[in-house]
């Protein structure tokens, strides 16, 4: 284990930081909460943007706290991996039907609300529970170490859409087939909660840490 690895988690009341820290600790990594957008000399090896709640509430917090420029800046340096979880992944993209505010726009794409349709007249929203993720060949690093199709815990009402499949790293089916894992260079996100997906989530966190170390 590499104890020198610096993992920072953005802590502005937008998600379950304790759960993420508990999971990282379980696989041997310390992490720190970040409450102010200040870049130290040593930039982190991984920046995690967690998130639960509504799109505009979260974007407002990021805007008001000066986080937007901070995140965009360290992302553009290309060397800092940024991982979004759940709403955090949505915030990394351009926007959502849920809100009016622009996202961080680090990964192209918008979010649309799950709708009942003819095939799925009883589709319940949010999509809540354990579902499978099929990782793309292009995101082989995410899928290492799984003996069978991994499943993770999901809770969300909006799903990723984009004209191209350029940023799709993994797909899930719920009413529609959509991207539940996305990546654009050093910026990537998971719609599900790996920190709450016991062994499957633990393995994914290991893959992330291996990728960045």
């Amino acid at each position: 284990m590499n104890n020198q690895t610096e993992v920072k988690i953005i802590d502005i009341g937008l998600g379950n930081i304790a759960s993420i820290q508990n999971m990282l600790k379980k696989i041997g990594f310390d992490s720190e909460r970040m409450t102010e957008p200040i870049i130290s000399e040593n930039k982190p090896d991984l920046l995690i943007l967690p998130g639960v709640g509504s799109y505009d509430y979260a974007m407002k917090k990021l805007n008001d706290g000066g986080w937007v420029e901070f995140i965009q800046k360290i992302a553009s340096e290309k060397s800092t991996p940024i991982m979004g979880i759940c709403l955090g992944m949505q915030l990394l993209c351009e926007g959502s039907e849920e809100g009016k505010l622009d996202g961080l726009s680090l990964i192209p794409g918008h979010f649309r609300k799950f709708q009942k349709n003819e095939d799925q007249p009883k589709l319940k929203v949010p999509h809540m529970g354990w579902n499978e993720v099929h990782f793309q060949n292009s995101a082989e690093w995410m899928s290492r170490g799984y003996e069978k199709t991994p499943r993770y815990y999901f809770v969300h009402s909006y799903y990723y859409t984009h004209d191209t499949s350029d940023y799709v790293a993994g797909e899930t089916h719920y009413g529609v087939t959509y991207a539940s894992a996305i990546q654009n260079g050093n910026v990537f996100g998971f719609q599900f909660h790996p920190e709450k997906s016991h062994k499957f989530g633990m393995n994914l966190f290991r893959n992330v840490m291996e990728k960045i170390c």
Binding site: N16, I17, A18, S19, N22, M23, K26, Y153, V155, H193, E195, K196, S197, H198, G201, M202
Partner: peptide, 30 residues
């Protein structure tokens, strides 16, 4: 509980205020 629980956790009982809920969410309860 939250520290031991690597799956989603729901807590119920005695919550009357937002501040109490804040404290519980902060510990890692979903």
């Amino acid at each position: 509980f939250a520290g031991e629980c690597f799956m989603p956790l729901c807590y119920g009982g005695g919550i009357k205020t937002l501040e109490q809920a804040d404290r519980i969410f902060n510990m890692g309860v979903e």
